[in-house]
Design a protein around this nucleic acid. Structure first.
Lengths: 188, 188
DNA sequence: CCACTCATGTAAAAAGTTACATGATTCG
DNA sequence: CGAATCATGTAACTTTTTACATGAGTGG
């Protein structure tokens, strides 16, 4: 089964919006796809080279805006076609690994106290994430008014909020269950 | 930063419960950690060899229950120690990649109709997942009554349910937004 | 001038998936 | 006996992370 190589298309996606350098792409991925996707330089720079070799992007000519070493890339016609094709393609199954849940699963080995610590950290993490999503949402409303992408982008933020809230509610439930176990139970 | 090599510990975790073969481990991971973790044979068999070389597990002796070729492994004292240490160690940041959200993010390129298709598939996927979690929850209640791990295991299922429901609710919201866009909007 | 950020890139390692090869056992 | 399942394992490949090396420009 041919692999889908998502990184390439994420890069193309941001070049479709405007010319950007590898460094720019990294930043914009972090700021917008944020916590449901990320790309490291180790992926971006080689991918840009490959994309150029295949004619899906080309180097922006002339003096670059900003710093001297900066090299922006521009998407090409075939690049746009490849991108749109990928966007239309059904997503693969949603695989996710949640280390915290695995540790809660095995927590009978170490007792409810340790499990509660995991839950507490998980709560802090997702609390912070929710804050971040709220900030992103506010920025979107301010900076992107009128842009056709806005409703789509807000939906992705809404998903982060919905799931983040679900995690926090689960933390409440877990905390209650584990506190009762710790109070009442005899454990190793 | 030394990597944590989670697979090893998941394997140890299931050997702590009872002796199992690589094949067994694969099955039990799928059945219990299910959709928030998975291990493939390509990870399990090499990992078992390594664990044995390090003295964290050993081969079960004598004729194996079940088939002839079956080779079960048993966790050792040091293995148990290493496992408990890992279970106590704080989980790393919760990284997750949601391909569907990336495609929704870039969907302005292809219009609301395509975005709705992504949402519909996402809904079907998570609907099925919720069913699975309910089944697992029911099995837990039936088969694991009285086992000390039960409340912990139920918590992991509860988390799957909470998040799955959040995804479904988001699908409703997304569907509504996109339907409005498709009806009213002029798009490329 | 020094520290910091901007910027590009490579090399190596780690992690994970997939496909394949092999053979035993069970069930119809 | 043939098909399906049980069972183990390897090799190749893809993907991703991490660490490192390098150097230019900016601000104090």
């Amino acid at each position: 089964m041919a692999r889908s190589n998502h990184s390439r298309f994420v890069i193309l996606g941001f070049l479709a919006d405007q010319p950007r350098s590898g460094y720019d792409i990294r930043k914009v991925v972090e700021a917008s796809l944020g916590n449901f996707w990320n790309e490291s330089f180790g992926q971006i720079y080689p991918a840009l080279k490959d994309l150029e070799a295949e004619g899906l992007v080309r180097k922006a000519e002339g003096p670059q805006a900003g710093r001297a070493q900066r090299q922006a890339y521009v998407i090409t016609g075939p690049g746009r076609e490849a991108l749109e094709k990928w966007v239309r393609t059904p997503a693969g199954p949603h695989a996710y690994r949640v280390e915290t849940l695995v540790k809660v699963f095995f927590a009978p080995l170490v007792g409810p106290r340790e499990a509660r610590a995991h839950v507490a950290r998980f709560r802090a993490e997702h609390g912070a994430l929710l804050e971040k999503y709220r900030t992103i949402g506010a920025h979107l409303d301010q900076d992107c008014t009128g842009q056709p992408g806005l409703p789509y982008w807000k939906l992705t933020v809404a998903c982060g909020l919905a799931v983040g809230n679900a995690y926090l509610e689960w933390c409440d439930e877990a905390e209650a269950v584990l506190a009762r176990l710790e109070a009442g139970g005899t454990h190793a």
